[in-house]
Amino acid sequence: MENYLFEKMDVPKAYMKLALPVVLSMIVSLVYNMVDTYFIALTGVQELVAGVSLVAPMFT
Rank of each mutant, 00 (worst) to 15 (best):
V55K: 04
D10G: 09
D36T: 13
V23I: 08
E7K: 10
P57W: 02
E47V: 15
L20C: 00
V11A: 12
Y32L: 14
Q46G: 15
V31N: 11
V35Q: 08
M9H: 01
V49T: 15
T43K: 10
I40N: 12
L18G: 05
L54A: 12
P57A: 04
Y32W: 11
M1T: 05
M9L: 15
M9D: 01
V22F: 02
L30D: 03
K17D: 05
V52A: 13
I40S: 14
A14D: 03
V55G: 04
L24Q: 06
Y15I: 01
K8T: 06
M58S: 07
P12K: 02
P12Y: 02
F39M: 11
F6S: 00
L48T: 11
L42P: 01
M26Q: 06
K13E: 14
M26S: 06
A41F: 12
M9F: 12
E2G: 08
I40V: 15
Y4E: 00
S25D: 07
L18C: 08
S25Y: 07
S53A: 04
K17S: 07
Y32R: 10
V55Q: 03
E7L: 07
I40F: 15
M16Q: 07
G51T: 10
T43F: 10
T37P: 09
K13P: 00
M16S: 04
K8W: 01
K8M: 03
A14C: 04
P21E: 01
V52H: 15
A56V: 10
V28F: 11
L24V: 02
V35M: 11
A50V: 14
F59V: 09
F6G: 00
A56P: 01
D36I: 05
L5I: 01
D10N: 13
V49Y: 14
A41N: 10
L54G: 09
K13H: 06
Y4Q: 00
L5M: 02
D10V: 01
S29D: 12
V55N: 02
V28R: 03
V49R: 13
V52K: 15
K17F: 11
E2M: 02
V49F: 13
P57G: 02
E47H: 14
S29Y: 11
L5N: 00
F59D: 06
M16A: 09
M9Y: 04
L48K: 14
M16Y: 07
L54T: 09
E7D: 08
Y38N: 04
V22R: 01
F39D: 03
V49N: 14
N3M: 08
L5H: 00
G44M: 02
V28E: 03
K8R: 06
A41Q: 10
V22K: 01
D10Y: 04
D10R: 12
V35I: 13
E47C: 12
V22I: 04
I27G: 05
M9E: 03
P57Y: 03
V11N: 04
V23N: 03
A41R: 11
A14E: 05
L24E: 05
A41D: 11
Y38D: 04
K8V: 05
E7T: 08
